[in-house]
Design a protein around this nucleic acid. Structure first.
Lengths: 247, 247
DNA sequence: GGACCTTTGTGTCAAAAATACACTTTGCGA
DNA sequence: TCGCAAAGTGTATTTTTGACACAAAGGTCC
Protein backbone atom coordinates (compact mmCIF):
# COMPACT_ATOMS: atom_id res chain seq x y z
CA UNK A 1 0.00 0.00 0.00
CA UNK A 2 1.51 3.27 -1.02
CA UNK A 3 1.96 6.19 1.26
CA UNK A 4 -1.08 8.32 1.73
CA UNK A 5 -0.05 9.94 4.95
CA UNK A 6 -0.40 13.49 3.86
CA UNK A 7 -3.72 12.84 2.21
CA UNK A 8 -5.42 10.88 4.89
CA UNK A 9 -8.55 12.32 6.25
CA UNK A 10 -8.64 13.44 9.80
CA UNK A 11 -12.16 14.68 10.11
CA UNK A 12 -14.75 15.29 12.76
CA UNK A 13 -17.88 13.21 12.77
CA UNK A 14 -21.21 14.59 13.76
CA UNK A 15 -24.74 13.31 13.95
CA UNK A 16 -27.70 15.38 12.79
CA UNK A 17 -31.28 14.44 13.52
CA UNK A 18 -34.37 15.15 11.47
CA UNK A 19 -37.26 14.82 13.90
CA UNK A 20 -40.64 14.80 12.22
CA UNK A 21 -43.73 15.70 14.17
CA UNK A 22 -47.38 15.85 13.16
CA UNK A 23 -49.77 18.38 14.67
CA UNK A 24 -52.82 16.55 13.31
CA UNK A 25 -52.69 18.80 10.32
CA UNK A 26 -49.20 19.49 9.04
CA UNK A 27 -45.88 17.78 9.10
CA UNK A 28 -43.29 19.64 11.18
CA UNK A 29 -39.60 19.35 11.80
CA UNK A 30 -37.82 20.12 15.06
CA UNK A 31 -35.18 22.76 14.42
CA UNK A 32 -32.64 24.58 16.54
CA UNK A 33 -32.30 28.31 16.42
CA UNK A 34 -28.61 28.96 16.34
CA UNK A 35 -27.69 31.91 18.49
CA UNK A 36 -27.10 35.15 16.70
CA UNK A 37 -23.51 35.87 15.98
CA UNK A 38 -22.83 39.58 16.11
CA UNK A 39 -23.83 41.14 12.85
CA UNK A 40 -25.42 38.03 11.49
CA UNK A 41 -29.00 36.87 11.57
CA UNK A 42 -30.05 33.87 13.53
CA UNK A 43 -30.48 30.84 11.42
CA UNK A 44 -31.88 27.38 11.80
CA UNK A 45 -30.24 24.01 11.91
CA UNK A 46 -31.01 20.41 12.65
CA UNK A 47 -30.18 19.29 16.16
CA UNK A 48 -26.76 17.78 15.83
CA UNK A 49 -23.27 17.79 17.26
CA UNK A 50 -19.96 15.99 17.22
CA UNK A 51 -19.86 12.42 18.39
CA UNK A 52 -17.52 10.95 20.96
CA UNK A 53 -14.56 8.72 20.36
CA UNK A 54 -15.94 5.58 21.89
CA UNK A 55 -19.58 5.99 21.00
CA UNK A 56 -21.55 3.85 18.60
CA UNK A 57 -23.06 6.03 15.92
CA UNK A 58 -26.65 5.40 16.89
CA UNK A 59 -25.92 6.07 20.52
CA UNK A 60 -24.26 9.32 19.65
CA UNK A 61 -27.23 10.46 17.63
CA UNK A 62 -29.51 9.84 20.56
CA UNK A 63 -27.23 11.58 23.01
CA UNK A 64 -26.88 14.62 20.82
CA UNK A 65 -30.60 14.80 20.28
CA UNK A 66 -31.21 14.56 23.97
CA UNK A 67 -28.70 17.26 24.80
CA UNK A 68 -30.20 19.71 22.36
CA UNK A 69 -33.88 18.99 22.69
CA UNK A 70 -34.49 16.87 25.76
CA UNK A 71 -36.00 14.07 23.69
CA UNK A 72 -35.15 10.65 25.04
CA UNK A 73 -35.14 7.09 23.80
CA UNK A 74 -36.18 7.87 20.28
CA UNK A 75 -35.79 5.25 17.60
CA UNK A 76 -33.59 6.92 15.02
CA UNK A 77 -33.23 5.56 11.53
CA UNK A 78 -30.08 6.35 9.63
CA UNK A 79 -30.38 8.39 6.46
CA UNK A 80 -26.76 8.24 5.38
CA UNK A 81 -23.47 10.08 5.48
CA UNK A 82 -23.06 13.61 4.22
CA UNK A 83 -20.24 16.06 4.16
CA UNK A 84 -18.43 17.09 1.07
CA UNK A 85 -15.45 19.37 1.51
CA UNK A 86 -17.43 22.41 0.38
CA UNK A 87 -19.95 21.97 3.11
CA UNK A 88 -19.15 25.34 4.63
CA UNK A 89 -20.52 27.43 1.86
CA UNK A 90 -22.44 30.01 3.87
CA UNK A 91 -20.76 32.73 5.94
CA UNK A 92 -23.04 32.05 8.90
CA UNK A 93 -21.77 28.50 9.02
CA UNK A 94 -18.17 29.59 9.31
CA UNK A 95 -18.98 32.28 11.83
CA UNK A 96 -20.89 29.90 13.99
CA UNK A 97 -18.20 27.25 13.91
CA UNK A 98 -15.53 29.76 14.79
CA UNK A 99 -17.46 30.75 17.84
CA UNK A 100 -17.99 27.22 19.01
CA UNK A 101 -15.40 24.78 17.75
CA UNK A 102 -11.77 24.46 18.57
CA UNK A 103 -10.94 23.52 15.03
CA UNK A 104 -13.52 25.27 12.89
CA UNK A 105 -11.83 24.45 9.63
CA UNK A 106 -11.65 20.72 10.13
CA UNK A 107 -13.66 18.76 7.68
CA UNK A 108 -16.87 17.43 9.12
CA UNK A 109 -18.68 14.36 8.00
CA UNK A 110 -22.11 14.00 9.39
CA UNK A 111 -24.38 11.05 9.75
CA UNK A 112 -28.02 11.93 9.27
CA UNK A 113 -30.83 10.28 11.21
CA UNK A 114 -34.55 10.70 11.24
CA UNK A 115 -37.39 9.83 13.52
CA UNK A 116 -41.08 10.37 14.04
CA UNK A 117 -42.53 11.66 17.27
CA UNK A 118 -45.91 12.86 18.43
CA UNK A 119 -45.85 16.62 18.67
CA UNK A 120 -47.81 16.46 21.88
CA UNK A 121 -45.18 14.21 23.39
CA UNK A 122 -42.66 16.93 22.95
CA UNK A 123 -43.47 20.50 23.79
CA UNK A 124 -40.31 22.53 23.31
CA UNK A 125 -39.15 24.23 26.47
CA UNK A 126 -37.23 27.23 25.23
CA UNK A 127 -35.87 28.19 28.60
CA UNK A 128 -34.42 24.89 29.59
CA UNK A 129 -31.84 24.42 26.89
CA UNK A 130 -29.06 26.51 25.56
CA UNK A 131 -30.74 26.82 22.19
CA UNK A 132 -34.43 26.75 21.60
CA UNK A 133 -35.78 23.82 19.68
CA UNK A 134 -38.97 24.65 17.83
CA UNK A 135 -41.36 22.89 15.53
CA UNK A 136 -41.46 24.38 12.07
CA UNK A 137 -44.01 23.32 9.43
CA UNK A 138 -42.14 21.63 6.68
CA UNK A 139 -43.34 23.97 3.94
CA UNK A 140 -42.01 26.96 5.85
CA UNK A 141 -38.48 25.68 6.16
CA UNK A 142 -36.21 27.45 3.74
CA UNK A 143 -32.45 27.32 3.87
CA UNK A 144 -30.76 25.64 6.78
CA UNK A 145 -27.24 25.74 8.14
CA UNK A 146 -24.49 23.66 6.53
CA UNK A 147 -25.87 20.88 4.39
CA UNK A 148 -28.84 20.38 6.65
CA UNK A 149 -31.34 21.14 3.94
CA UNK A 150 -29.95 18.26 1.93
CA UNK A 151 -30.17 15.97 4.93
CA UNK A 152 -33.74 17.00 5.55
CA UNK A 153 -34.68 16.38 1.94
CA UNK A 154 -33.10 12.95 2.01
CA UNK A 155 -34.84 12.07 5.23
CA UNK A 156 -38.20 13.11 3.86
CA UNK A 157 -37.61 11.06 0.76
CA UNK A 158 -36.82 8.02 2.86
CA UNK A 159 -39.87 8.60 4.97
CA UNK A 160 -42.09 8.71 1.91
CA UNK A 161 -40.61 5.53 0.55
CA UNK A 162 -41.06 3.80 3.85
CA UNK A 163 -44.64 4.90 4.12
CA UNK A 164 -45.47 2.95 0.98
CA UNK A 165 -44.00 -0.23 2.37
CA UNK A 166 -44.69 -0.17 6.08
CA UNK A 167 -47.38 1.13 8.35
CA UNK A 168 -46.28 4.36 9.93
CA UNK A 169 -48.10 6.61 12.25
CA UNK A 170 -47.77 4.78 15.49
CA UNK A 171 -45.13 7.22 16.62
CA UNK A 172 -46.58 10.33 15.04
CA UNK A 173 -50.06 10.12 16.47
CA UNK A 174 -51.46 10.17 19.99
CA UNK A 175 -52.61 6.84 21.36
CA UNK A 176 -56.20 7.52 20.39
CA UNK A 177 -56.77 9.06 17.02
CA UNK A 178 -59.38 9.30 14.33
CA UNK A 179 -59.22 7.88 10.86
CA UNK A 180 -59.34 11.40 9.49
CA UNK A 181 -56.22 12.26 11.42
CA UNK A 182 -54.43 9.24 10.06
CA UNK A 183 -55.68 10.20 6.64
CA UNK A 184 -54.30 13.71 6.96
CA UNK A 185 -51.01 12.30 8.20
CA UNK A 186 -50.57 10.27 5.04
CA UNK A 187 -51.49 13.24 2.90
CA UNK A 188 -49.08 15.49 4.78
CA UNK A 189 -46.17 13.13 4.36
CA UNK A 190 -46.81 12.15 0.78
CA UNK A 191 -47.89 15.61 -0.26
CA UNK A 192 -50.85 14.34 -2.28
CA UNK A 193 -54.60 14.04 -1.84
CA UNK A 194 -55.92 10.59 -1.09
CA UNK A 195 -59.51 9.52 -1.59
CA UNK A 196 -61.21 9.28 1.79
CA UNK A 197 -63.23 6.17 1.18
CA UNK A 198 -60.44 4.27 -0.47
CA UNK A 199 -58.01 5.26 2.24
CA UNK A 200 -60.31 4.00 4.95
CA UNK A 201 -61.01 0.75 3.20
CA UNK A 202 -57.33 0.08 2.73
CA UNK A 203 -56.38 0.95 6.27
CA UNK A 204 -59.11 -1.11 7.82
CA UNK A 205 -58.25 -4.12 5.72
CA UNK A 206 -54.77 -4.17 7.19
CA UNK A 207 -56.33 -4.98 10.52
CA UNK A 208 -53.88 -2.97 12.55
CA UNK A 209 -56.56 -0.63 13.85
CA UNK A 210 -58.96 -1.24 16.69
CA UNK A 211 -62.00 0.95 16.99
CA UNK A 212 -62.73 2.27 20.43
CA UNK A 213 -66.15 3.04 21.84
CA UNK A 214 -65.05 6.57 22.47
CA UNK A 215 -65.93 9.43 20.14
CA UNK A 216 -64.87 13.03 19.77
CA UNK A 217 -66.69 15.52 21.97
CA UNK A 218 -67.42 19.19 21.57
CA UNK A 219 -66.76 19.41 17.87
CA UNK A 220 -69.25 21.40 15.80
CA UNK A 221 -69.94 18.52 13.47
CA UNK A 222 -70.47 14.81 13.58
CA UNK A 223 -68.01 13.48 16.15
CA UNK A 224 -65.62 10.95 14.82
CA UNK A 225 -64.75 7.64 16.32
CA UNK A 226 -61.41 7.03 17.97
CA UNK A 227 -59.13 4.22 17.00
CA UNK A 228 -55.97 2.82 18.43
CA UNK A 229 -53.31 0.63 16.90
CA UNK A 230 -53.26 -3.04 17.65
CA UNK A 231 -49.66 -3.16 18.77
CA UNK A 232 -49.21 -6.82 18.08
CA UNK A 233 -50.39 -6.70 14.49
CA UNK A 234 -48.74 -3.37 13.88
CA UNK A 235 -45.35 -4.72 14.84
CA UNK A 236 -45.86 -7.94 12.93
CA UNK A 237 -46.53 -5.86 9.86
CA UNK A 238 -43.51 -3.68 10.57
CA UNK A 239 -41.32 -6.74 10.43
CA UNK A 240 -42.68 -8.27 7.28
CA UNK A 241 -43.57 -5.05 5.51
CA UNK A 242 -46.15 -5.35 2.82
CA UNK A 243 -45.23 -5.97 -0.75
CA UNK A 244 -47.79 -3.75 -2.06
CA UNK A 245 -48.98 -0.51 -0.64
CA UNK A 246 -49.20 2.05 -3.35
CA UNK A 247 -51.58 4.92 -3.07
CA UNK B 1 -21.13 24.67 24.52
CA UNK B 2 -19.35 22.70 27.17
CA UNK B 3 -15.93 21.23 26.75
CA UNK B 4 -15.81 17.91 25.00
CA UNK B 5 -12.21 18.07 23.98
CA UNK B 6 -11.15 14.80 25.45
CA UNK B 7 -14.13 12.98 24.09
CA UNK B 8 -14.15 14.24 20.58
CA UNK B 9 -13.83 11.68 17.91
CA UNK B 10 -10.79 11.69 15.73
CA UNK B 11 -11.44 8.80 13.45
CA UNK B 12 -10.46 7.58 10.04
CA UNK B 13 -13.07 7.43 7.34
CA UNK B 14 -13.11 4.73 4.73
CA UNK B 15 -15.31 3.79 1.84
CA UNK B 16 -16.27 0.18 1.13
CA UNK B 17 -17.93 -0.92 -2.07
CA UNK B 18 -20.34 -3.77 -2.61
CA UNK B 19 -20.18 -4.49 -6.33
CA UNK B 20 -22.88 -6.83 -7.54
CA UNK B 21 -22.42 -8.73 -10.76
CA UNK B 22 -24.67 -11.16 -12.57
CA UNK B 23 -23.26 -14.04 -14.62
CA UNK B 24 -26.64 -14.70 -16.24
CA UNK B 25 -27.30 -17.22 -13.56
CA UNK B 26 -26.20 -16.17 -10.11
CA UNK B 27 -25.65 -12.96 -8.27
CA UNK B 28 -22.01 -12.37 -7.41
CA UNK B 29 -20.07 -9.89 -5.35
CA UNK B 30 -16.60 -8.60 -6.13
CA UNK B 31 -14.33 -9.34 -3.18
CA UNK B 32 -10.70 -8.74 -2.39
CA UNK B 33 -8.49 -11.49 -1.09
CA UNK B 34 -6.52 -9.91 1.68
CA UNK B 35 -2.94 -11.10 1.67
CA UNK B 36 -2.06 -13.79 4.11
CA UNK B 37 -0.57 -12.55 7.30
CA UNK B 38 1.94 -15.02 8.64
CA UNK B 39 0.16 -17.72 10.56
CA UNK B 40 -3.27 -16.56 9.56
CA UNK B 41 -5.49 -17.64 6.73
CA UNK B 42 -6.30 -15.35 3.89
CA UNK B 43 -9.65 -13.78 4.20
CA UNK B 44 -11.98 -11.79 2.08
CA UNK B 45 -13.08 -8.21 2.24
CA UNK B 46 -14.99 -5.64 0.28
CA UNK B 47 -12.86 -3.34 -1.83
CA UNK B 48 -12.36 -0.31 0.35
CA UNK B 49 -9.81 2.04 1.80
CA UNK B 50 -9.36 5.31 3.62
CA UNK B 51 -10.56 8.45 1.96
CA UNK B 52 -8.58 11.63 1.42
CA UNK B 53 -8.90 14.87 3.27
CA UNK B 54 -10.30 16.95 0.45
CA UNK B 55 -12.30 14.34 -1.34
CA UNK B 56 -16.08 14.22 -1.64
CA UNK B 57 -17.35 10.94 -0.27
CA UNK B 58 -18.68 9.65 -3.57
CA UNK B 59 -15.48 10.53 -5.35
CA UNK B 60 -13.47 8.72 -2.73
CA UNK B 61 -15.57 5.60 -3.13
CA UNK B 62 -14.95 5.59 -6.84
CA UNK B 63 -11.24 6.19 -6.47
CA UNK B 64 -10.84 3.43 -3.92
CA UNK B 65 -12.80 1.05 -6.09
CA UNK B 66 -10.68 1.91 -9.07
CA UNK B 67 -7.42 1.44 -7.20
CA UNK B 68 -8.38 -1.97 -5.93
CA UNK B 69 -10.23 -3.41 -8.88
CA UNK B 70 -9.63 -1.26 -11.92
CA UNK B 71 -13.33 -0.50 -12.30
CA UNK B 72 -13.99 3.02 -13.52
CA UNK B 73 -16.87 5.44 -13.61
CA UNK B 74 -19.31 3.28 -11.74
CA UNK B 75 -22.45 4.81 -10.34
CA UNK B 76 -22.27 4.05 -6.64
CA UNK B 77 -25.27 4.32 -4.38
CA UNK B 78 -24.68 4.97 -0.73
CA UNK B 79 -25.81 2.36 1.75
CA UNK B 80 -24.98 4.26 4.91
CA UNK B 81 -22.37 4.71 7.60
CA UNK B 82 -21.05 1.86 9.67
CA UNK B 83 -18.41 1.56 12.31
CA UNK B 84 -19.13 0.98 15.91
CA UNK B 85 -16.18 1.01 18.27
CA UNK B 86 -16.13 -2.78 18.49
CA UNK B 87 -15.65 -3.17 14.79
CA UNK B 88 -12.33 -4.94 15.19
CA UNK B 89 -13.66 -8.10 16.66
CA UNK B 90 -11.66 -10.65 14.66
CA UNK B 91 -7.93 -11.28 15.12
CA UNK B 92 -7.32 -11.19 11.37
CA UNK B 93 -8.68 -7.68 11.23
CA UNK B 94 -6.24 -6.42 13.80
CA UNK B 95 -3.34 -8.30 12.26
CA UNK B 96 -4.06 -6.90 8.86
CA UNK B 97 -4.43 -3.35 10.06
CA UNK B 98 -1.18 -3.56 11.98
CA UNK B 99 0.61 -4.59 8.83
CA UNK B 100 -0.84 -1.80 6.77
CA UNK B 101 -1.92 1.22 8.77
CA UNK B 102 0.09 3.73 10.66
CA UNK B 103 -2.49 3.96 13.35
CA UNK B 104 -4.13 0.55 13.46
CA UNK B 105 -6.07 1.25 16.61
CA UNK B 106 -7.78 4.40 15.42
CA UNK B 107 -11.48 4.13 15.16
CA UNK B 108 -12.69 3.72 11.62
CA UNK B 109 -16.03 4.79 10.33
CA UNK B 110 -16.84 3.50 6.93
CA UNK B 111 -19.32 4.61 4.34
CA UNK B 112 -20.81 1.71 2.40
CA UNK B 113 -21.69 1.94 -1.28
CA UNK B 114 -23.13 -0.49 -3.74
CA UNK B 115 -23.34 -0.79 -7.47
CA UNK B 116 -24.37 -3.15 -10.22
CA UNK B 117 -22.10 -4.09 -13.08
CA UNK B 118 -22.16 -6.62 -15.88
CA UNK B 119 -19.81 -9.41 -15.01
CA UNK B 120 -18.59 -9.49 -18.58
CA UNK B 121 -17.66 -5.86 -18.37
CA UNK B 122 -15.25 -6.66 -15.62
CA UNK B 123 -12.98 -9.66 -15.82
CA UNK B 124 -10.72 -9.59 -12.78
CA UNK B 125 -7.05 -9.35 -13.67
CA UNK B 126 -5.30 -10.95 -10.74
CA UNK B 127 -1.83 -9.99 -11.78
CA UNK B 128 -2.35 -6.32 -12.30
CA UNK B 129 -3.32 -5.24 -8.84
CA UNK B 130 -1.81 -5.67 -5.46
CA UNK B 131 -4.68 -7.82 -4.32
CA UNK B 132 -6.80 -10.02 -6.47
CA UNK B 133 -10.39 -9.03 -6.87
CA UNK B 134 -12.63 -11.99 -7.61
CA UNK B 135 -16.30 -12.59 -8.16
CA UNK B 136 -17.86 -14.77 -5.51
CA UNK B 137 -21.40 -16.11 -5.75
CA UNK B 138 -23.41 -14.52 -3.06
CA UNK B 139 -24.48 -17.77 -1.42
CA UNK B 140 -20.87 -18.82 -1.02
CA UNK B 141 -19.79 -15.75 0.88
CA UNK B 142 -19.41 -16.48 4.54
CA UNK B 143 -17.72 -14.23 7.02
CA UNK B 144 -15.91 -11.16 5.79
CA UNK B 145 -13.33 -8.87 7.30
CA UNK B 146 -14.36 -6.15 9.74
CA UNK B 147 -18.04 -5.35 9.52
CA UNK B 148 -18.13 -6.02 5.81
CA UNK B 149 -20.67 -8.77 6.13
CA UNK B 150 -23.06 -6.30 7.71
CA UNK B 151 -22.42 -3.82 4.92
CA UNK B 152 -23.03 -6.49 2.31
CA UNK B 153 -26.28 -7.52 3.94
CA UNK B 154 -27.48 -3.93 4.10
CA UNK B 155 -26.56 -3.37 0.49
CA UNK B 156 -28.44 -6.45 -0.63
CA UNK B 157 -31.45 -5.39 1.35
CA UNK B 158 -31.40 -1.99 -0.32
CA UNK B 159 -31.02 -3.60 -3.70
CA UNK B 160 -34.05 -5.79 -3.12
CA UNK B 161 -36.13 -2.87 -1.99
CA UNK B 162 -35.09 -0.87 -4.99
CA UNK B 163 -35.90 -3.68 -7.35
CA UNK B 164 -39.53 -3.50 -6.29
CA UNK B 165 -39.75 0.19 -7.02
CA UNK B 166 -37.54 0.81 -9.99
CA UNK B 167 -36.46 -1.10 -13.05
CA UNK B 168 -33.03 -2.56 -12.56
CA UNK B 169 -30.97 -4.65 -14.85
CA UNK B 170 -29.68 -2.11 -17.26
CA UNK B 171 -26.31 -2.20 -15.58
CA UNK B 172 -26.23 -5.88 -14.74
CA UNK B 173 -26.98 -7.26 -18.17
CA UNK B 174 -25.24 -7.09 -21.52
CA UNK B 175 -26.79 -4.76 -24.05
CA UNK B 176 -28.70 -7.56 -25.71
CA UNK B 177 -30.32 -10.05 -23.43
CA UNK B 178 -33.18 -12.48 -23.33
CA UNK B 179 -36.25 -12.28 -21.18
CA UNK B 180 -35.17 -15.47 -19.46
CA UNK B 181 -31.95 -13.82 -18.43
CA UNK B 182 -33.80 -10.86 -17.00
CA UNK B 183 -36.13 -13.28 -15.30
CA UNK B 184 -33.24 -15.13 -13.71
CA UNK B 185 -31.73 -11.82 -12.63
CA UNK B 186 -34.84 -10.92 -10.69
CA UNK B 187 -34.99 -14.34 -9.12
CA UNK B 188 -31.32 -14.18 -8.17
CA UNK B 189 -31.65 -10.82 -6.46
CA UNK B 190 -34.93 -11.46 -4.74
CA UNK B 191 -34.12 -15.04 -3.89
CA UNK B 192 -37.56 -16.33 -4.87
CA UNK B 193 -39.13 -18.08 -7.83
CA UNK B 194 -41.23 -15.95 -10.11
CA UNK B 195 -43.80 -17.32 -12.52
CA UNK B 196 -42.43 -17.11 -16.04
CA UNK B 197 -45.55 -15.99 -17.81
CA UNK B 198 -46.53 -13.44 -15.20
CA UNK B 199 -43.03 -12.06 -15.14
CA UNK B 200 -43.01 -11.60 -18.89
CA UNK B 201 -46.39 -10.00 -18.95
CA UNK B 202 -45.42 -7.52 -16.27
CA UNK B 203 -42.09 -6.65 -17.83
CA UNK B 204 -43.50 -6.14 -21.28
CA UNK B 205 -46.27 -3.94 -19.99
CA UNK B 206 -43.72 -1.51 -18.61
CA UNK B 207 -42.67 -0.80 -22.18
CA UNK B 208 -39.03 -0.39 -21.37
CA UNK B 209 -38.01 -3.35 -23.51
CA UNK B 210 -37.58 -3.42 -27.25
CA UNK B 211 -37.52 -6.74 -28.98
CA UNK B 212 -34.76 -7.20 -31.53
CA UNK B 213 -34.96 -9.32 -34.64
CA UNK B 214 -31.95 -11.23 -33.48
CA UNK B 215 -32.21 -14.62 -31.79
CA UNK B 216 -29.86 -16.88 -29.94
CA UNK B 217 -27.75 -19.20 -32.08
CA UNK B 218 -26.21 -22.57 -31.44
CA UNK B 219 -28.20 -23.40 -28.38
CA UNK B 220 -29.54 -26.95 -28.15
CA UNK B 221 -33.12 -25.83 -27.73
CA UNK B 222 -35.49 -23.27 -29.09
CA UNK B 223 -33.44 -20.10 -29.49
CA UNK B 224 -34.71 -17.16 -27.58
CA UNK B 225 -35.26 -13.68 -28.79
CA UNK B 226 -32.99 -10.84 -27.77
CA UNK B 227 -34.23 -7.65 -26.23
CA UNK B 228 -32.65 -4.36 -25.38
CA UNK B 229 -33.73 -1.62 -23.05
CA UNK B 230 -35.35 1.48 -24.45
CA UNK B 231 -33.01 3.92 -22.78
CA UNK B 232 -35.40 6.82 -22.89
CA UNK B 233 -38.27 5.04 -21.24
CA UNK B 234 -35.99 3.21 -18.85
CA UNK B 235 -34.58 6.43 -17.50
CA UNK B 236 -37.96 8.10 -17.36
CA UNK B 237 -39.13 5.25 -15.20
CA UNK B 238 -36.01 5.46 -13.07
CA UNK B 239 -36.87 9.03 -12.24
CA UNK B 240 -40.50 8.56 -11.43
CA UNK B 241 -40.26 5.06 -10.02
CA UNK B 242 -43.43 3.05 -10.06
CA UNK B 243 -45.78 3.02 -7.17
CA UNK B 244 -46.56 -0.50 -7.53
CA UNK B 245 -44.27 -3.30 -8.44
CA UNK B 246 -44.73 -6.17 -6.09
CA UNK B 247 -43.98 -9.67 -7.19
C1' DG C 1 -33.59 -39.51 -39.95
C1' DG C 2 -36.05 -40.10 -35.96
C1' DA C 3 -36.52 -40.06 -31.05
C1' DC C 4 -35.49 -37.26 -27.29
C1' DC C 5 -34.01 -33.58 -24.56
C1' DT C 6 -34.04 -28.80 -23.20
C1' DT C 7 -35.62 -24.28 -23.07
C1' DT C 8 -38.72 -20.81 -25.25
C1' DG C 9 -42.94 -18.83 -25.66
C1' DT C 10 -47.81 -18.26 -25.26
C1' DG C 11 -53.51 -17.58 -23.15
C1' DT C 12 -57.28 -17.93 -20.06
C1' DC C 13 -59.94 -17.74 -16.16
C1' DA C 14 -61.00 -16.50 -11.45
C1' DA C 15 -59.95 -13.70 -7.53
C1' DA C 16 -58.35 -9.56 -5.62
C1' DA C 17 -57.35 -4.78 -5.77
C1' DA C 18 -57.70 -0.17 -7.48
C1' DT C 19 -60.32 3.68 -8.86
C1' DA C 20 -63.92 6.95 -9.28
C1' DC C 21 -67.66 8.90 -7.35
C1' DA C 22 -72.21 11.41 -3.93
C1' DC C 23 -75.25 11.46 -0.35
C1' DT C 24 -76.78 10.93 4.50
C1' DT C 25 -75.60 11.55 9.41
C1' DT C 26 -74.39 14.03 13.48
C1' DG C 27 -73.73 17.79 16.51
C1' DC C 28 -72.92 22.47 17.27
C1' DG C 29 -73.85 27.38 16.76
C1' DA C 30 -76.33 31.23 15.11
C1' DT D 1 -84.79 25.24 13.15
C1' DC D 2 -81.63 26.22 9.86
C1' DG D 3 -77.19 26.05 8.30
C1' DC D 4 -72.56 24.52 8.53
C1' DA D 5 -68.85 21.29 8.73
C1' DA D 6 -66.81 17.08 8.94
C1' DA D 7 -67.83 11.96 9.48
C1' DG D 8 -69.09 7.99 7.54
C1' DT D 9 -70.69 4.76 4.15
C1' DG D 10 -71.38 1.45 -0.94
C1' DT D 11 -71.18 0.28 -5.65
C1' DA D 12 -69.92 -0.43 -10.23
C1' DT D 13 -66.00 -0.61 -13.43
C1' DT D 14 -61.50 -1.46 -14.58
C1' DT D 15 -57.08 -3.21 -13.69
C1' DT D 16 -53.98 -6.34 -11.74
C1' DT D 17 -52.68 -10.56 -9.85
C1' DG D 18 -52.00 -15.42 -9.59
C1' DA D 19 -52.36 -20.03 -10.97
C1' DC D 20 -51.73 -23.15 -14.41
C1' DA D 21 -50.16 -26.62 -19.22
C1' DC D 22 -48.81 -27.45 -23.71
C1' DA D 23 -46.87 -26.65 -28.40
C1' DA D 24 -42.66 -24.94 -30.94
C1' DA D 25 -37.77 -24.85 -32.06
C1' DG D 26 -33.33 -26.57 -32.37
C1' DG D 27 -29.54 -29.48 -31.13
C1' DT D 28 -27.80 -34.17 -29.78
C1' DC D 29 -27.43 -38.87 -29.87
C1' DC D 30 -28.34 -43.19 -31.68
Amino acid sequence: MHDKMNHELNPRISADCVIFGFDLNKLNVLLIERETVVGLDTYKALPGDLIFEDEPLDTAANRVLNELTGLENIYLEQVGAFGDPDRLSKPQDRAWLKAVRQDPDARVITIGYYSLVGMNDYVPQPASFARAATWIPIEEIGELAFDHREILDSALKKLKEKLLVQPIGFNLLPEKFTLSQLHRLYEAILGVELDKRNFRRKMLKMEILESLEERQEGVPHKPSQFFKFNEQKYHDLLKTGFDNFGF
